[in-house]
Amino acid sequence: MNIESYDAAFERTKTKKEGAFIPFVVAGDPDFETSLQIVKVFVENGADALEIGFPFSDPVADGPTVQLADIRALESGMTAEKGFEFIRRIREFTDIPVGVLTYYNLIYKMGLEKFYKMARENGANAILAADLPPEEACEALEAAQKNGVQQIFMAAQTTSNERLQEITKMCSGFLYVVAVMGTTGARAELKTTTVDLIKRIKSHSDIPISVGFGISKPKHVREVINAGADGAIVASAILNIITENLENKEEMLQKVGKFCAELKEATKS
């Protein structure tokens, strides 16, 4: 299978005058096979790229929704190695970009060389560690480059212009823009400062940007795409559907699919 690059994916959506819709799920939540079915539903309902979480016991950047998903996944026996097996299974049915979202201790414990090698061999495009700022990323970047894996970094409202320049130099694939001051989790409204942040980044760099944290409604997706973002990442709002429908998997998949279709539609404004 010929894996699509992030550049190609953003080019593809741009040509269609759309933004990229990037849904998130934690590998193994609530179990390996169900989360794989959830990813299939993402793809069938218009996902342009995928964010796959590898669960960590102490996810400080995450709110209660992702924490619960992490706990369910850990209880189902998920590890980084099984996470890569999960991605290999995803590659049986799609070639759109797949990014891994995790915390640095999982990478450090496995060993950087092995982690990035497994990422490449199993078809992951990129790695993002939520607690790995550029200051600490030298070794990770080296391992990433050696294995042809992209390393994604985050930027937030508190990130200065100077810092933004440093980050965009190191970052490849896309820049993950944090839409809120806070942890992950569904929000009722999107702050106007998010729009300003997107515009500020776009005036500094050509790197594609995807916005996440608190993007939970089609309206939010439309707002960030209209403000100039290349992609919108939706996590907690999807995980809430999973959490609420653990007893009925058919209904869970159906609801996730319907919600994803609405989110994808919102990228076409």
């Binding site: 950047a61 939520a130 700022p133 970094f153 985050m154 508190t158 810092r163 980050i167 944090v178 001051m181």
Partner: peptide
Amino acid sequence: DGKFGKYGGIYVPELLIP
């Protein structure tokens, strides 16, 4: 860099760096 040998550092989400 806040390092003691290789230990220490600032392994935190971007939001906290400033």
